[in-house]
């Protein structure tokens, strides 16, 4: 546990997870960042316990195979550091991730995930092979007009029916890519595959499988988190 009386400084790192990096799982990414921080010899807070690890917090992980254009993570620093210097130290250690921006925040409350309320995705669903654009468009309209869109979520013990409709804020089609803006707080979390599965059902295809999935943007509550590059 971290003492609440201590000052906390967070470095918010903006990076991309593109190309072959999309095949890395979340834990792989955590390890890669932990090693990068150790190489850069940054004054970061480490977790207590048997296997100390740099304190890093992430928004909800992308599924393996999905890309992220503007991914973010927060690094817990022990001292106040200049953002530009941090960028200089870390960027060469994370070359493949194209570290585009570093911001330093003082006393950010909670984790980076707790600041996030919505995310934008673009997806190329497998049903795009079988349904033409007008059919997909009308499925999107059906979705938009519905009061309830129920999906099944499997927890360890039971299957739960959840209405995702209220937390899908935008849904559209650009070329053959389905675009969406969905809730990503603990209470409003909607997975892109769930939206695709619902659309697929209108079109007579089962499963929310996709060939390409890109998280294009994340929206934070805090006005301090600036996403402009």
């Amino acid at each position: 546990m971290i003492m609440s009386t201590e000052h906390r400084y967070f470095a918010l790192l903006t990076y991309g997870k593109r190309g072959l990096l999309r095949y890395l799982g979340h834990l792989d990414i955590v390890r890669v960042f932990d090693r990068a921080v150790r190489r850069a010899r940054l004054p970061v807070r480490y977790s207590e316990g048997f296997a100390p690890r740099a304190q890093l917090s992430f928004p909800p992980p992308l599924p393996v195979g999905a890309e992220g254009l503007q991914e973010m993570c927060a690094l817990d620093l022990t001292v106040d550091l200049d953002a530009q210097k941090l960028h200089q130290a870390l960027a060469p250690q994370l070359r493949a991730f194209g570290l585009s921006k570093v911001q330093v925040h003082r006393d950010m409350r909670g984790s980076i995930w707790s600041q996030l309320y919505a995310s934008n995705y673009q997806a190329l669903p497998d049903f795009a092979d079988h349904a033409d654009a007008s059919a997909i468009r009308s499925a999107i309209e059906t979705f938009a007009d519905a009061d309830e869109v129920t999906v099944e979520r499997h927890t360890k013990r039971r299957i739960r029916a959840v209405n995702i409709r209220p937390h899908v804020y935008e849904l559209g089609l650009v070329g053959n890519m389905v675009t969406m803006r969905v809730g990503t707080t603990e209470e409003t979390m909607v997975k892109p595959a769930e939206v695709l599965a619902a659309l697929g059902e209108y079109l007579g295809f089962s499963g929310g499988t996709w060939r390409r999935l890109i998280r294009t943007a994340m929206h934070f509550r805090s006005t301090e988190i600036d996403l402009t590059l």
Partner: peptide, 8 residues
């Protein structure tokens, strides 16, 4: 090696 890799 630790400088170059960052292994824990």
């Amino acid at each position: 090696i630790i400088d170059a890799t960052g292994y824990d």
